[in-house]
Design a protein around this nucleic acid. Structure first.
Length: 279
DNA sequence: GTTGAGTCCTGAAAGC
DNA sequence: TGCTTTCAGGACTCAA
């Protein structure tokens, strides 16, 4: 499940292979992969063919490839999306959704997505900042991220903390795994009312979030199965460092109390009932 | 503004 | 063994 560290690992992995490369051909194997490109696969391909990729950028879980046409190829990996650099002669595999050939005879870019929650689209004039993600807030590593503004916005919410952390219009890049890990490090329950949070606690939360992301990025991301791999096909190994996510019944690394799993906003949440008492 | 439910989808795992 | 059901997740929509 790609969250910020996984998406950033993938961005770094594909950058050297696509930057400066001209797109040769585009094949859309599954229409759902471009469902937010309403003009259809022919238009999708027409806008890409002949364009040169000028870089790779990311905001939260979205990444995009600015093009020399001022358009951008925007991508969200959803639950199971992968961007892979492959040799053209490598077998397609059953979940190949989009293939982009480059002016590099030995490599091509493939969008592979088992569960088809991921998508690509061409954003018109989106090279600098695609319109389609203008509602996505900066992530914690974005130079435009304002901790004071985030703290104010969070405390003005009448919601629960975990739900707010997963709201990409408030802060981006956080998914279920890193939300649970950050909450555990901050010793706070996801159901904590946002309007009762102190400034100091939000500051501690953000510091822990940065730490979790930084450590995960250094590990190449979290891989539970083959659904997340880096551009070179290798798995990340941060799952070995997870304290609570997926650890129900196992001892809390801090106090040895068994980790609890419960449904929260239609998602599984994992927490230590001793370290993170219900608010 | 916020919540909760529903939708999309696939494949593994569990249940029968 | 084979079929059916459940589950996992992110983004989005919609009714309340």
């Amino acid at each position: 499940m790609p969250e910020l560290p996984e998406v950033e690992s993938i961005r770094q992995g594909v950058a050297e292979w696509v930057t400066g490369r001209q797109i040769g051909s585009v094949t859309v194997m599954h229409p759902r992969a471009i469902r937010r490109h309403p003009a259809g696969p022919d238009d999708f391909a027409r806008r890409l063919i002949g364009a040169t990729v000028t870089g790779t950028r990311r905001r939260g879980k979205y990444l995009w490839f600015p093009l020399d046409t001022d358009d951008a190829l925007l991508c969200h990996l959803g639950m199971s999306g992968q961007l892979l650099i492959k040799a053209p002669e490598d077998p397609d595999g059953p979940h190949l959704r989009i293939r982009l050939s480059l002016d590099d005879p030995d490599h091509e870019l493939r969008f592979v997505d088992q569960r088809t929650f991921g998508e690509m689209l061409v954003s018109a004039d989106g090279a600098e900042a695609p319109d389609e993600i203008r509602h996505i807030a900066p992530d914690v590593f974005d130079p435009g991220f304002d901790p004071a503004a985030f703290t104010t916005a969070l405390r003005m919410r009448r919601s629960h903390l975990k739900r707010a952390l997963l709201d990409q219009s408030l802060i981006s890049g956080i998914g279920n795994i890193y939300a649970d890990e950050t909450l555990w490090r901050t010793r706070i329950h996801g159901g904590h009312p946002t309007h009762t949070l102190t400034v100091e606690l939000v500051s501690e939360l953000l510091a822990n979030l940065r730490d979790v992301f930084t450590e995960a990025l250094a590990a190449g991301g979290t891989s539970f199965d083959e659904l997340y791999v880096r551009a070179n096909g290798e798995s990340g190994y941060f799952d070995r460092s997870l304290a609570v996510y997926g650890k129900q019944g196992q001892p809390c690394p801090r106090c040895s109390t068994p980790i609890v799993r419960e449904k929260f906003t239609n998602r599984s949440s994992f927490y230590c009932p001793q370290c993170q008492p219900v608010a």
